[in-house]
């Protein structure tokens, strides 16, 4: 498996072995004019751990990881990578950054793009060629390495975008919503590779607003809302905060915001929020409140299409903590 090869490959010379957590950040604050985008966020990520930053669009995930990667100066707070402050330029060689955009030259080939970025990280000659071949193999693009990126499919571009972040064998890989806009098959492939990278000993920070992705790949999750880290832990720890509660998904048509508001008034319902074509409800006992929820739907004029009761998950946690759905 190519991941094993990646883990066994020699590290970049400038990157010393870290001790303790690979990433440690505390009290991060970032303000843009009058708006506070990040308000006191702090967390740690160990080697081999995949840490998910879960939150809706605009919650402050991207701002947080830009401070982690040194792309934004924090107004307050500290970031250390491998115990060293981020202010040291060479520390950046320990971090692999995969931006949300496909930050690659479309008119250059995959190999040319990787060669350029590898040189920026100090890779030269034979080692550069070796790392390019390795990254292309890891992302399944070896046979298309001489094609221009503009000829790639969306999924291939995403994979190459990740490959570019792995060239220099970082201790910490930061992925900013790496599956946005890709088809289910490519998404599955990307998630598999991220899991493999974590298994190889790399520390990974993974931002997403897809609950199912955080649920699948992340060892720990930090939930961000309005610039604050409102909860953190493993999925089990987070869900257990809700106790023995159920999640109820009601697919409906009509004024879903009004429907969610009316459902919040039902006895036994802890939270309810509209998202896309449905209303998510968290309740202590899903089956007992179900008749009242149906009655509330009839009262509000909404038409129910389907109802599903399941165990609470990360989305339920987010809903319970914020009163809103992840994707509204």
């Amino acid at each position: 498996m190519t991941v094993a090869k990646l883990a066994a490959a020699p590290r970049t010379a400038v990157a010393p072995e870290p001790t303790g957590p690979v990433l440690s950040c505390a009290g991060l604050v970032k303000r843009f004019a009058q708006r506070t985008a990040v308000d006191g966020i702090g967390f740690q990520v160990d080697a081999g751990e995949i840490y998910g930053l879960l939150g809706p669009n605009g919650a402050g995930k991207t701002t947080t990881i830009k401070m982690v990667c040194g792309l934004l100066d924090a107004d307050a707070g500290v970031v250390t990578i491998g115990g060293r402050p981020l202010a040291e330029l060479s520390v950046r060689a320990l971090v692999g950054y995969v931006p949300q955009d496909i930050a690659l030259y479309p008119d250059l080939t995959a190999r040319e793009n990787l060669a350029f970025l590898g040189r920026l990280y100090g890779l030269r000659a034979g080692l550069l060629d070796e790392r390019i071949a390795e990254a292309l193999e890891l992302t399944g693009l070896s046979d298309r390495d001489k094609d221009r990126v503009e000829a790639y499919s969306g999924g291939m571009k995403r994979r190459l975008n990740i490959a570019a972040g792995l060239l220099h064998h970082p201790k910490l890989l930061v992925l900013d919503e790496p599956t946005v806009g890709v088809d289910p098959q490519s998404r599955h492939a990307i998630l598999e590779r991220v899991q493999a990278l974590g298994d190889s000993g790399m520390a990974v920070v993974y931002t997403t607003h897809y609950m199912e992705e955080a649920d699948r790949v992340c060892d720990r999750v930090g939930i961000i809302d309005r610039g604050r880290l409102i909860a953190e832990g493993t999925k089990r720890q987070l869900v257990s905060r809700l106790g023995e509660k159920d999640r109820i998904d009601l697919v409906a048509s009509g004024d879903l915001q009004a429907l969610a508001a009316s459902m919040r008034g039902v006895t036994g319902v802890e939270s309810a929020a509209a998202a896309a074509d449905r209303v998510h409800v968290v309740a202590a006992d899903g089956r007992s409140v179900l008749p009242d929820l149906v009655e509330a739907a009839e009262r509000s004029g909404a038409t129910l299409t389907s109802v599903e009761v399941s165990e609470a998950d990360l989305e339920s946690v987010f809903l319970n903590l914020t009163g809103t759905a992840l994707r509204e």
Binding site: V14, G70, L71, R92, V95, Y97, P106, L120
Partner: peptide, 16 residues
């Protein structure tokens, strides 16, 4: 280059 986000990617590398 700016619109593609490549300057941002360059700035994340250990270069000034």
């Amino acid at each position: 280059t700016r619109r593609l986000g490549i300057y941002e990617r360059m700035a994340a590398a250990p270069v000034r």
